[in-house]
Design a protein around this nucleic acid. Structure first.
Lengths: 220, 220
DNA sequence: GTGCGGGCTTTACGGTGTAAAGACAATTTA
DNA sequence: TAAATTGTCTTTACACCGTAAAGCCCGCAC
């Protein structure tokens, strides 16, 4: 028989909910159980509260997910303008962004998928564009490199997540011990170079390529 | 009062379900209503059938989504080996892949998100890698360009979808009439160059960059 | 004290994926 | 021809989802 709460028996002291504590717990839950594992009821349970309690802090689940994105973007390191040369600042920012995809593989897709316009994000965009401008790019070229980097970073994040999810050193198509060399000889030949252990080098290869071009573009 | 079916009153003749007809209808439904709009019951309704009928053709919804991906990949054009120079073959393949993101913006994310290893996909990978090899790349460099293209194509697809979804000529952050020039001067300066109308040029800019490097890599 | 308001709970509704079993026509077998 | 089998679709049921609406209860202001 379920006991009703009385004033004499305290309901286990619990810090009151806040937008921040909730979104933080939500991110933890996503990290643990995946995006589908985040439900209002489950999240409530994890915080010792009924699911509906969350609706007093977030209008709906979409707003909660925006909160989670906020938590994620906090992990982007933005070096102060004078501290480093522009391209080095960019490297740092991209490196920490990539770190998000590695630390929060199950949440990263939020950043790729959801439109999200907050001050923090505007500020981040501004920093990236400022670095490009400091490097000497015209607005038009800045736009193109801005997009180029965005495409590359998000694509790499998503693909690396998929690769790392397979155990433990898999390739995109489990090709390392690929047993159909006759049918797919090229895949068999390339497979060893697609191992998870090589992802960092592959990532750098691509990013270096873009930075090299960026270096040249500044001369104009 | 609901009439029970009798032999005399036919139940509106309907072609029997097949995996192909179902996945085709599912793709249509996604195109129309979005990924969340695809439910077994809705899909059944669209085909004049109960939702559960689908389970006689697909083990679960995941398998149905694999079927949808199959439909999508059918739209990738793979030019025969001898028909064109290797880099031109690659261009064609990438161009038609990008076309998927434009024709099926609401389904494209499936290709980015879901692991999917079918013969068709293996064959596509093989063609891409064959073109890179024909161009003269080592397996290691092939792996790196393979990844580079994949990252770029998927990142561009996702980002362009998000941009195009906003009406009707919006920028990633609705910046065209950006009214906070003092706070975010770089964003304001770059915004006009991020308009949807410029997406094609931006996409080509990035892809050309990679192809230029690829051209040089072959010499080694 | 009395009233109020904010924080959380309760209940309810229509939707979801899908397991299990049933209905019924077409096909195969005897 | 009749009976059995098979394959396709339907029915029912369950646990879960997001969330609208209303209620409970504690701490504060007066």
């Amino acid at each position: 028989m379920a006991r009703k709460r009385r004033t004499s028996e305290r309901p286990a002291p619990r810090a009151p909910l806040t937008r921040e504590s909730i979104s933080r717990a939500a991110l933890q839950l996503i990290d643990r159980e995946g995006l589908d594992g985040l439900s209002m009821r489950q999240l409530g349970r994890a915080m010792g509260v009924e699911g509906m309690a969350i609706y007093h802090h977030f209008r709906d689940k979409g707003e909660l997910l925006d909160g989670v994105m906020e938590r994620l973007f906090e992990e982007v390191e933005v070096p102060p303008r004078g501290s480093l040369p522009p391209l080095e600042r960019l490297r740092r920012m991209f490196g920490s962004y990539r770190g998000i995809s590695i630390r929060h593989p199950k949440a990263f897709i939020l950043l790729v998928n959801r439109r999200f316009n907050t001050e923090r994000l505007f500020a981040l965009y501004e920093q990236v564009l400022e670095a490009l401008a400091d490097h000497g790019l015209t607005p038009e070229l800045s736009a193109r490199y801005f997009r180029m980097f965005g495409y590359y970073m998000n694509g790499a994040g998503m693909a690396e997540i998929a690769s790392r999810a397979a155990q433990p050193d898999a390739t995109p198509v489990q090709l390392e011990t690929f047993d159909r060399r006759e049918q797919y000889p090229r895949i068999a030949a390339v497979a060893p170079h697609l191992r998870v252990a090589k992802l960092d080098a592959i990532y750098d290869f691509g990013l270096d390529m873009i930075f090299r071009e960026l270096q040249k573009s500044a001369k104009a």
